[in-house]
Design a protein around this nucleic acid. Structure first.
Lengths: 153, 153
DNA sequence: CTAGGAGCTTGAGTCGGCTCTAGGTCAACC
DNA sequence: GGTTGACCTAGAGCCGACTCAAGCTCCTAG
């Protein structure tokens, strides 16, 4: 129970968020802070734990592909205070949709990749088993050039 | 059984892959075709169904975030023919890992987003129910500025 | 015979999201 | 009192992946 509202330097924020100091200044410029960043002696930025918490949310939203303009809009709404919850909800729902469909796309892609990995594993496994008697297998993993057209996996 | 190895124009390829003609030429320049794109009369590019199949794979790999250099490397390996299956497998496995961890990250982010959507839904629902007797709720959805520090959702 | 439309090449431009540089202030330590 | 080291500003640069522009060649239809 020592630090109640300790003020943190940009370097400390960088440390605990994983963002670079460059990025922190850039985000500030982009309006991604709910309350204007205070300044300490010498004009140095001074942050609070609240800023870290907000940045944590921002980082998660960015990591899930929310574009900066959307994030800025959301920040604006929060900064404006209560009364615009419908719009915040709409924004979050839209992003929710984007993320789920992105997960779907990735999952589908993953199917193909897993399938191809399986093909190559089998192929190499067979090669290894046929290694004693000097056999040479001429076929590939579905990607071989000059294979029968229309048979690519 | 009409078209055995019909040759397709760049426009037709664009149509059936969804890539733009610009992008097709760009991909060619980037070495993303297994066999060199043939040319028809007047120097026009002429593609086959095999190219479409390969592009389909490329599109899926790109959609799952494989960078162009990796995709080029993979293409190179396939072009070289049999003998490098281990490296192809390694490449695919690495990408497989990237994709699964990306899905994990997105799924985690989705948790937060779903949670926040829930908060705002509840909040608005309460507002709606309290609408008769002229009550005004002063609190937000976990993002409100000037809420108690450390309580942001 | 000419007007469109599809294609060609080279090279530049765009966009999102950082990332870095240059040149300066300031406080603290040796 | 000089040299770090963290910070400041304004603005340029970079990277990945396209995307477009200018100026040309064809072919085909009216």
């Amino acid at each position: 129970m020592a630090e109640v509202t300790a003020s943190l330097s940009i370097g400390q924020i960088a440390e605990r968020t994983g963002l670079s100091v460059h990025t922190l200044r850039f985000y500030e410029q982009e309006g991604l802070f709910v309350s204007p960043v205070r300044r300490g002696p010498g004009g140095r930025r001074s942050y609070t734990q609240d800023d870290v918490d907000w940045l944590t949310v921002c980082i998660i939203l960015r990591a899930s592909g929310m574009p900066l303009p959307a994030l800025r809009r959301y920040t604006d709404l929060v900064r404006e205070g209560t009364g615009n919850e419908e719009e915040r909800l709409a924004l979050l729902r839209e992003h929710h949709g984007r993320v789920t469909s992105q997960i779907d796309r990735l999952t589908q892609s993953l199917d193909l990749i897993t399938f191809k990995v399986g093909l190559y594993e089998d192929l190499l496994e067979q090669d290894r088993r046929a290694a004693g008697p000097g056999r040479r297998r001429p076929s590939g993993g579905g990607d071989v050039p000059a294979s029968r057209p229309g048979t690519s996996a």
